[in-house]
């Protein structure tokens, strides 16, 4: 939860709430762009961001994204984050 994970913004899903769909290691997850919304949201589509618990905290370049992902995989933290995302999706469905 303390380390961010890189993801690529694929589409704006709700401009009013500054929400977008991100691709995180092949997993789709809706994230908030609020912390990086100092520019038009559309300009963020295709960009890599560092995502912390569902919030894009920094725009990074593709190389930095690849290197960070490798470091997180090495630590097992990438899988931990993807598992947490799956848990989050499951939590919404429980009755």
């Amino acid at each position: 939860m303390c380390l961010g994970i890189p993801g690529q913004i694929v589409a704006i899903t709700d401009a009013a709430r500054q929400m977008a769909m991100a691709d995180v290691s092949g997993v789709r997850r809706e994230v908030s762009l609020a912390p990086v919304a100092d520019r038009p949201l559309d300009a963020l589509v295709g960009k890599w961001v560092l995502i912390h618990v569902g919030f894009a905290m920094a725009v990074i370049d593709a190389q930095e994204a690849a290197d960070t992902l490798e470091a997180l995989r090495g630590l097992g933290e990438a899988q931990e984050t993807l598992d947490a995302m799956a848990e989050g999706a499951k939590a919404l469905e429980e009755q």
Binding site: R29, E30, G54, E87, G88, A89
Partner: peptide, 11 residues
């Protein structure tokens, strides 16, 4: 419930 983000809690 375990969530990934406070956004999940909001939802």
């Amino acid at each position: 419930r375990m969530v990934y983000s406070p956004l999940d809690a909001l939802e």
